[in-house]
């Protein structure tokens, strides 16, 4: 049977508070920017259908809270992620320095089956601010870090000006899909939606 199976990709966006996680998500999904997004409490999500090569997949993007308090509660949202997007503000080196923590924390909390090869994507956001004059983290420095972490793809982005946002999420979808299909080897192509258990994630709902 031809594979027309619907694929659901779960993508988690992490990063310090105020780096633009919600804005990036909304720019990508709704093509809208506002400087008025409220602070995210817990997590929000949006979905978007994406074409990756010849496959149509539904990307479910989870936007999380950035303040470090209550990070361990995040485990509920991290579960079953197919890709993790790490966001920092290029105008604040502290937000870049914290990527290490966000990455480590994610790997601990989400405990993916193959942590070394779990797909991350790094976005350096707000490159538009003051025409780049306020920049504190150079692209070179960021790419070095990404290289040291096993070659994480890196994008300079501006959610405000819609710069590189589509490209970045295309990469995110592609990498998530790679990860997802590997996980899904045992899943029959026809999904019985009436089945009791979740069809996709064998590891879910353990206690």
């Amino acid at each position: 049977m031809a594979s027309r199976k619907r694929t659901l990709l779960k993508v988690i966006i992490l990063g310090d508070s105020g780096v633009g996680k919600t804005s990036l998500m909304n720019q990508y999904v709704n093509k809208k920017f506002s400087s008025q997004y409220k602070a995210t409490i817990g997590a929000d999500f949006l979905t978007k259908e994406v074409q990756v090569d010849d496959r149509l997949v539904t990307m479910q993007i989870w936007d999380t809270a950035g303040q470090e308090r209550f990070q361990s509660l995040g485990v509920a949202f991290y579960r079953g992620a197919d890709c993790c997007v790490l966001v920092y503000d290029v105008n604040s080196s502290k937000t870049f320095d914290n990527l290490e923590n966000w990455r480590d924390e994610f790997l601990i909390q989400a405990s993916p089956s193959d942590p070394d090869n779990f797909p991350f994507v790094v976005l350096g956001n707000k490159v538009d601010v003051e025409g780049g004059k306020a920049r504190q983290v150079s692209e070179k420095k960021a790419k070095q870090w990404c290289g040291a972490k096993g070659g994480i793809p890196h994008f300079d982005t501006s959610a405000k000006e819609d710069l590189n946002v589509d490209d970045a999420f295309q990469t995110i979808a592609r990498n998530a899909l790679k990860n997802e299909s590997e996980e899904e080897l045992y899943i029959p192509e026809t999904v019985d939606v009436n089945a009791q258990a979740a069809p996709r994630r064998a590891q879910s709902s353990c206690c």
Binding site: N30, D44, T47, E49
Partner: peptide, 16 residues
């Protein structure tokens, strides 16, 4: 099935 929950998002993905 479960897609019911996210069908509003088809095509452009309307935010919740």
């Amino acid at each position: 099935g479960k897609e019911v929950l996210s069908t509003a998002a088809v095509v452009v993905g309307v935010g919740v």
